[in-house]
C-alpha cells in the first residue's frame, strides 16, 4: 500500500486529503501513477486532467515526473506552490 496525500485544488477535486492505495506493478514512474489515478473516476480526472501542471513529492521531497516511485512511503500531489 502507498499513502497518497493531496493539497489545495487537487485535494478539493479528488474530494479527500489522503488515502492508501495498492498500486499495480506496471505503475513504475510518477507519470504512470498520474495516468493510473486518472482512470479511477471522474473526480481524479477532474484533478489530474492536465498532468503537466501537477507537482509531486516523494517522501516529502520534490521529484520530476519521470522519477520511479518504488519504495515510496508517501506521495504528495499538488498544484504549483503559491506561498510567501
Amino acid at each position: 500500500m502507498t499513502k497518497l496525500v493531496y493539497f489545495a485544488w487537487v485535494r478539493e477535486r479528488i474530494g479527500k486529503a489522503e488515502e492508501e492505495l495498492a498500486l499495480p506493478a506496471e505503475v513504475v514512474t510518477v507519470d504512470d501513477l498520474l495516468n493510473h489515478l486518472r482512470g479511477l473516476g471522474e473526480e481524479y480526472e477532474a484533478a489530474l486532467q492536465f498532468p503537466d501542471v501537477i507537482r509531486v513529492a516523494i517522501d516529502q521531497e520534490h521529484v520530476e515526473h519521470d522519477e520511479p516511485i518504488a519504495g515510496a512511503r508517501e506521495i504528495g500531489l499538488f498544484p504549483p506552490m503559491t506561498g510567501g
Binding site: 493539497f7 489545495a8 485544488w9 513529492a57 520534490h62 504528495g76 499538488f78 498544484p79 504549483p80 506552490m81 503559491t82 506561498g83 510567501g84
Partner: peptide, 24 residues
C-alpha cells in the same frame, strides 16, 4: 520559498464566498 515551499493560497472575498486558489 515562493516557488518550492509547499504552501497554497485561496482567496476569501468580502462577499463571504470562498473564491479561487491563487495561480502560480
Amino acid at each position: 520559498l515562493k516557488t518550492s515551499a509547499p504552501f497554497w493560497k485561496k482567496e476569501h472575498g468580502r462577499d463571504g464566498k470562498a473564491g479561487d486558489w491563487i495561480s502560480a
